[in-house]
Design a binder for these strands. Structure first.
Lengths: 261, 261
DNA sequence: AAGTGGTCTAGACCACTGA
DNA sequence: CAGTGGTCTAGACCACTTC
């Protein structure tokens, strides 16, 4: 019954005692954040292996010359990221599996760029119009208000991947077509000081109409992924509504979920 | 330019001053949690309207007879849920848009039940087998290890919605087919003391093969939504791997994302 | 019984925002 | 400038887990 090495027995990380955390009290970076970053790096580099116990918070705080709440704040941020698990009466240990992305409001442009696919964009349309009923409802504005309507075709390796149709409240952002072609919409919004905070998404599928097929270089009836998304800024105001269609043969959504305790 | 009521000016919630928060120090429920629940209820009932400022933390803590860190902990939990926004130098205010589900590891069964669709399940297969290479890789076990293979057909209103194929490490859970038909897999796991913590998902689409079409009462070539998911428990160990296909005409994924600051 | 994280307190100083 | 949240401290007691 006993297995080699008795992997069920969690050991306090031996490396932790000799790990030198360099905390700079003169830095504007908060102490708990400095500690969290260095713990995260230690986990990522395998210095703290999955299953390792972190050692109790009191010792750790004394050793680091920090108060316990500060150490707890650092640990808590990594628990929120899914890297550590706390167990009362047991200790804090490194999670067993590799966590990749904690979950993001994914930008197609960034996704493709991260995958080394060198995305390109054609802006097919970029003009102001009156909001139709469905767009107005999604953006929480009155029907007929002015919005910016955007239609883009995103490609990689010269092949279409997605057709993106977006609506933004007018005056929220200056949308230069040339810039839109060289970067993503979300990146432009960030640069303009709009910080995205949350989004409501619906992901579905359907068969391509002949028009859609022609646009995406697919055959009519091919399976398409569809996404509708309303994005909100940090005050909860809708700032963007999008209807996207993706060639299912060339794209899929990939993400990590964390369950709140 | 000025609009009626000047909605850009955030007011401290007038109701807050007369709101009586009932804190029970004898309760085993933490004080910060009691406060968070009552704040959330006040927001949900519109007593705290979107845009309302919460009043500063010092006053609030004195008024409630709590320390400031405790009040902060309550507020922070609602910020994490996306209900409140903090702004340094300004205050804490209620988010403008309605947040629905903060984001969950969605269970199809629960989703359908919540939608009042009265889901039913046919267990088509429930037996142990040796893990194939792809299943073993997804579950982080060695190829050939024993796993439980599960195939289920989920219906609403007598119509198929999804075909669910799942694999679990053997001995993790007793999977009674009768019980599986009357509830969801995730609910059974929770009952067995397995707390799901995170999951890695891929959502895509493709056209139905003739076999799939027959199984789901679709026509061959119809668009299907596909999902692959590996779920991890709170120590980060993989506990379930699933390959699901959904009739796109009857189901779509719907969820809320929060961006971490 | 010993050790762990969970909660809570009563202060303090700082950085940022807005008028 | 006054007011806000952001950070930090040095303690305390409790509930839970394990042995």
């Amino acid at each position: 019954m006993a297995k080699a090495g008795d992997p069920a027995r969690a050991m306090t990380a031996p490396a932790l005692h000799s790990l030198d955390f360099a905390l700079d009290r003169g830095s504007p970076v908060p102490l708990y954040y400095q500690l969290a970053q260095q713990l995260e790096a230690a986990i990522e580099h395998g210095i703290l292996a999955p299953g390792n116990l972190l050692g109790n918070e009191i010792d750790l705080s004394m050793r680091l010359g920090l108060s316990r709440p500060t150490v707890r704040q650092a640990i808590q941020s990594l628990v929120d990221k899914g890297l550590l698990v706390r167990r009362r009466g047991v200790g804090t240990q490194v999670v067993h599996s590799q966590v990749k992305r904690p979950l993001e409001l994914s930008s197609l442009y960034d996704d493709l760029e991260a995958a080394g696919q060198g995305p390109t964009t054609d802006v097919l349309r970029n003009e102001r119009e009156s909001a139709t009923a469905d767009v107005a409802a999604a953006l929480g504005i009155t029907e007929g208000s002015e919005v910016v309507a955007l239609e883009r075709l995103r490609c990689t390796h010269g092949q279409p991947v997605a057709f993106l149709c977006n609506y933004l409240p007018a005056n929220i952002l200056e949308l230069d077509s040339a810039r839109l072609e060289s970067t993503g919409l979300y990146r432009m919004m960030r640069t303009a000081g709009i910080t995205l905070h949350s989004a409501r998404q619906t992901i579905g599928a359907r068969s391509a109409t002949p028009e859609e097929a022609a646009r995406l270089d697919e055959t009519a009836g091919a399976a398409l992924l569809t996404m509708q998304r309303t994005a909100y800024d940090d005050t909860g105001r809708p700032v963007e509504y999008g209807r996207h269609i993706y060639r299912a043969s060339r794209y899929a959504f990939d993400f990590q979920l964390l369950v709140r305790p």
